[in-house]
């Protein structure tokens, strides 16, 4: 069989759907965060696939910036989780109603 970009796109869709499912199923905020990372990675894979397919470097540039934003997002998110868990142990996502979200 020939390897076309469709294969990569379907794989990225599967990874994205798995990440979304995990985000909705799990209640540990850390694991929910990791699922967000997985979804970002799936989107990165589509960026690289399209960049390779269209012979355009813009796809890889986009992935570079997504990586930077993901790193910043993880740093801030983990700091928030640490700050919350210091105040109340064993917090799950359902307990975090103090912010009236």
């Amino acid at each position: 069989m020939e390897l076309t970009s469709t294969w990569y796109l379907v794989l990225a869709a599967i990874l994205f759907a798995l990440g979304a499912t995990g985000l909705l199923v799990r209640r540990n905020p850390l694991i929910m965060f990791m699922c967000v990372e997985l979804m970002l990675n799936a989107v990165n894979l589509t960026f690289v696939t399209f960049g390779n397919d269209l012979n355009d470097l813009g796809g890889e540039i986009s992935v570079f910036f997504v990586l930077v934003v993901a790193a910043a997002e993880v740093v801030i998110g983990l700091a928030i989780i640490v700050a919350i868990m210091r105040r109340r142990n064993e917090a799950t996502a359902d307990d975090l109603s103090a912010l009236r979200g």
């Binding site: 570079f64 993901a70 790193a71």
Partner: peptide, 27 residues
């Protein structure tokens, strides 16, 4: 590995260094 398969060598390296090396270790 899939990035490498698509001639994105730099991103493959960055993926391993930043994601596996830094972000997951931070987790």
């Amino acid at each position: 590995v899939l990035f490498l398969n698509q001639d994105a060598q730099f991103l493959a390296a960055v993926q391993v260094i930043v994601y596996a090396g830094a972000i997951v270790v931070l987790f």
